[in-house]
Design a protein around this nucleic acid. Structure first.
Length: 919
RNA sequence: GCCUUGGUGGUGGAAUUGGUAGACACGCGGGACUUAAAAUCCCGUGGGCAGUAAUGCCUGUGCGGGUUCAAGUCCCGCCCGAGGUACCA
């Protein structure tokens, strides 16, 4: 019997694929299909067995689509800029470019062993100047654009300049940082610097003083999605709020479109919901409250305009610019102390300690609907960055206002009939209004509308939609990132000439910030334009390079354009995107924004980048434990550990099989255990286990290379799919892998006779064999399309289990079977495909069609007995539904016999058994 | 708190979307081959009861109700887990 020599087979075909560029794609007249994986950041640790999960799934899908006649674009590249390489550089002095290169090489080796169908000629690296030229180019386009709210579109800033010269801000409805008003005369009188300053207020990419998340440990600012609960996502260092001059992208201008277009995407509901929450649209109103003492209006934002009669105080964020002038002489000390105190607190402390604090300014505001005077307070529960940074507080119907009012003894006025506010606020938006003047008697929903109407009619404010989504902070005080194509003249930023791109990242040898406190680029020599203007010292953040990489794959070698119109028109956008859910509020928002911006410019033909998205689950580690009896070097098997006082010790999972410890290997594993003793059960040492994160320190890392070495890439691929649904997170457990490996060996053996000769006959297949094949084709096809790969693998196993006893070696059956297996196990399929006498690669084969007729066909014998349940003499069809049976049985008068005089209305039959007869 | 998901044997997981619950695989038990082991192959395997037996019966998808000839699946009310998110006014 010829052995299934997977090592030889896999090496052979991987070489063949690479040498003949089998997976190279070009534009042709076939329909296109674009399958994309989120490209990896090549970390120093290499790939563990969890990383390729998504790549395997997308590879199966790509190969399948190719068999179905699509021209499939399936590229891969590297997200090569990033913090870890730079941190490593700071510690070792090793240039990040060097470590990145090494890591990429290692990644590539590991990936190549798994047999992917990537077109490596299209590889991109974000740190490659030929690539980041287009990241910089896009930035320049953003700098030179503004967002027109009227057309809901980005437009050239030159339009705005023209308009200013003709009409000033009159008639302009543009997204901006701060509303401005000036006339054409005023504009025309302004100097260059003033004009540039004004334009920054409108540019899509702009420089501004903003409150940023400053991470001192990393020495850089972070975007909102890079921070969680006051700590940096990378490293978990504390983050504080600070005002700094930073480059920002006006992502918020696109909030509404980003929200609306979610509806047309084929993404999971939970992911769309996460994005909706992140965008955080809320409809409400801005209402002006007059402050007599300083003769100004303060504007608050509220979604509950209906509760305005219950506003018993007003509160400002401590950072609010009006805080100072509102504070009376007597209150000055208290207020400034309070503001100082909140300033010192980090974001994290604020989250940890939510006790009610605040200070009274001494001033009063006038409630515009009833003329009441209400005190103005300052409190850190009001956020500077949301709404106007000022709220009208309605303690009766907002729990935070309620807590504040109770603490400082401020009045609580209930506004909804029958609600009890003695112990807590009534936050629900239901009930009938009371104590509310003209709103009395209305329901809350009606009152919200009526109040907004009233406010607008009386010029007390206006309707307003607010979003939580803020502009993206785009500067990083780091070295290992894209340089900004920006220089400064008289302190104002200008972009360099597009034709001079890329602006290459200069070499430096120390990667710490410069002594002057400037970012690392401050150390670069001659970091200036030819005219001697200083260049920007910040670099771009990680998401810059990953925001449009899917476009670059369409036309990766084009040095004239990001992507040619021809390539873009053909490939359009990504049909299937596979990646982790951790990018929900980062990359997946920025990419959508970036794409929409390029769409507005006419660079892309589709306004959404990723049509369908699959989030693959994480593969966790499955750790094993040995139990050492305290104070000894004696280990007790898991089943007996309760009889002793033990400590659990992580054991390397690679020396454990089916939770049975290999004692010899264990003794050699670490010097400490050389003379360890063991208390066994049934002659074995059984380990305990737990599901944890896959990490070196838990000794539960399984390396794909090791699996490929001992079982082969095809087994690895199929086993990863067999483990469970792709979307689901699950622990890796090497134990079950034998089953899949056994399947491949059985499949292999179908093609060989007992003497080990390749033996496939051209005989006609039997009906049974054909049924088995067609059933499998149908199942595999629907499963792949539903991304249900675990059940696909089962279907193959069932098929082989059925064919084995029949000793089926017929080409008519086995050849199509090989084709449908090829997306899953491409190496073995390719080998057999060639053994069958085919010349070109199996990926050029066609996915076989199944015959619905063959599967639907069924023959009946009438029941032999009936007493509640009926059995049929003969085997019934493989699949049919109740409806088919109902029709079939009723069509024959013989069926009426068994119901003793009554005519059956409905006969329900399930896979050969009558379940019920309704008369 | 809110949003999104899940809850099925010893384990990973199936179930044509309302139709024999537990496919397939692991593990376990038994057997064949072998001097032996590995590999391979065959049989059994949710729980319980009855029977020499083929087999039959009861019970069973987190808990409690409901709709239906029929519920893991639909409806109402709970419990638990996972993920996201939050002084967002």
């Amino acid at each position: 019997m010829m052995e299934y020599n997977f090592r030889k087979i896999e090496q052979k075909w991987q070489k063949y694929w690479a040498e003949n560029k089998i997976y190279k794609v070009e534009i042709n007249d076939k329909p296109k299909f674009y399958v994309l994986d989120m490209f990896p950041y090549p970390s120093g640790a290499g790939l563990h067995v969890g990383h390729p999960l998504g790549y395997i799934a997308s590879d199966i899908f790509s190969r399948y689509k190719r068999l179905c006649g699509f021209n499939v674009l399936h590229p891969m590249g590297y997200d090569a800029y990033g913090l870890p390489a730079e941190q490593y550089a700071i510690q070792t002095g090793q240039h990040p470019a060097v470590t990145t290169e090494t890591n990429i090489k290692r990644y590539r080796e590991q990936l190549d062993k798994i047999g992917f169908s990537f077109d490596w000629d299209r590889e991109v690296r974000t740190c490659d100047p030929k690539y980041y030229k287009w990241t910089q180019w896009a930035f320049i386009q953003m700098f030179n654009s503004y967002y027109c709210n009227k057309y809901q579109q980005a437009r050239p800033i030159s339009e705005l300049i023209e308009a200013f010269a003709l009409h000033g801000t009159c008639g302009i409805d543009a997204a901006c940082s701060k509303p401005l008003q000036f006339t054409a005369e005023e504009w025309n009188l302004k100097g260059e610097i003033q004009r540039q300053e004004i334009l920054l207020n409108y540019r899509m990419a702009y420089l501004a003083d903003t409150v940023v998340n400053w991470c001192a440990a990393l020495g850089t600012v972070l975007a909102n999605d890079e921070v969680s609960e006051g700590l940096s996502i990378r490293g978990g260092y504390p983050v504080e709020q600070k005002i700094m001059k930073q480059w920002c992208l006006r992502v918020s201008a696109y909030a509404q479109r980003l929200l609306n277009d979610l509806d047309k995407l084929d993404w999971s509901e939970s992911l769309k919901e996460t994005q909706r929450n992140w965008i955080g649209r809320s409809e409400g109103a801005e209402i002006k409250f007059h402050i007599e003492s300083i003769n100004t209006d303060l504007t608050v934002f509220t979604t509950r305009a209906d509760t305005i009669f219950g506003a018993t105080f007003m509160a400002l964020a401590p950072e609010n610019e009006h805080a100072d002038k509102l504070t009376t002489e007597q209150q000055k000390q208290e207020v400034s102390q309070y503001i100082e105190r909140t300033k010192r607190r980090t974001e994290r402390e604020r989250i940890a300690d939510r006790s009610v604090t605040g200070a009274f300014t001494g001033s009063y505001a006038t409630n515009p609907v009833n003329g009441e005077k209400i005190p103005i307070w300052i409190s850190d529960y009001v956020l500077a960055g949301y709404g106007t940074g000022i709220i009208m507080a309605v303690p009766a119907h907002d729990s935070r206002d309620y807590a504040f009012a109770k603490h400082f003894n401020l009045p609580v006025i209930p506004l909804i009939e029958g609600c009890d506010v003695s112990a807590e606020s009534f936050d629900a938006k239901e009930g009938i209004m009371i104590n509310s003047g003209f709103l009395n008697g209305l329901t809350v929903t009606q009152a919200i509308e009526a109040a907004k109407q009233y406010i607008e009619n009386n010029n007390l404010g206006k309707r307003k939609v607010n979003c939580r989504l803020r502009d993206a902070i785009f500067s990083r005080q780091r070295y290992w990132g894209e340089p900004f194509p920006v220089y400064y003249r008289q302190g104002m930023p200008y972009t360099i000439d597009e034709h001079k791109l890329p602006l290459e990242l200069p070499d430096i040898d120390i990667f710490l910030p410069a002594e002057t406190g400037e970012p690392p680029l401050g150390r670069a020599k001659n970091w200036q334009t030819d005219e001697g203007c200083p260049l920007e010292l910040n670099t771009m953040p990680g998401f810059a390079g990953s925001s449009a990489y899917y476009l670059r794959y369409m036309d990766p070698h084009n040095d004239k354009e990001l992507v040619s119109a021809e390539a873009n028109k053909y490939w359009r956008n990504v049909d299937l995107y596979v990646g982790g859910t951790e990018h929900a509020t980062g990359h997946l928002i920025y990419s959508r924004y970036w794409n929409k911006f390029l769409f507005d410019l006419g660079v892309t033909v589709e306004d959404e980048p990723f049509k369908k998205l699959i989030n693959q689950g994480m593969i966790q580690g499955r750790s094993n434990f040995a139990y050492r009896i305290k104070g000894t070097n004696k280990f007790v098997s898991a089943g007996l550990k309760n009889q002793y006082d033990t400590t659990a010790i992580h054991v390397d999972v690679n020396i454990v099989k089916n939770d049975v410890l290999d004692i010899e290997k264990f003794k050699n594993w670490m010097p400490d255990f050389n003379n360890a003793q063991f208390i066994l059960e049934d002659g074995k040492y059984i380990c305990g286990y737990a599901v944890e994160k896959m990490s070196k320190s838990m000794y539960n890392v399984v390396n794909p290379d090791v699996i490929v070495e001992s079982f082969g890439a095809d087994t690895l691929r199929m086993y990863e799919m067999f483990l469970g649904p792709v979307e689901q997170s699950k622990p890796w457990d090497t134990n079950g892998i034998d089953g899949v490996h056994r399947f491949l060996r059985r499949f292999w053996s179908l093609f060989f006779d007992s003497d080990g000769n390749f033996n496939v006959s051209d005989e006609k297949a039997s009906r049974q064999e054909l049924k088995c094949l067609h059933k499998t084709i149908k199942k595999i096809q629907t499963d792949i399309e539903n991304f249900s790969f675990n059940t696909s693998v089962s279907a193959f196993m069932i098929c082989v289990n059925e064919l084995m006893p029949l000793k089926c070696n017929k080409r008519e059956i086995l050849e199509p079977l090989t084709v449908i297996l090829s997306p899953f196990a491409p190496h073995i399929a390719e080998e057999i495909w060639h053994l069958l006498g085919n010349q070109s690669s199996i990926c050029n084969a066609a996915f076989p069609a199944y015959s619905e007729e063959l599967l639907a066909e069924h023959t009946f014998e009438y029941p032999v007995s009936f007493n509640g349940k009926v059995r049929f003499k003969k085997e019934l069809p493989l699949t049919f539904n109740a409806k088919q049976i109902e029709e079939a049985t009723l069509a024959d008068p013989a069926t009426q016999k068994w119901t003793e005089g009554k005519t059956p209305r409905k006969i329900i039959v399930v896979t050969g058994k009558i379940i019920n007869i309704v008369t």
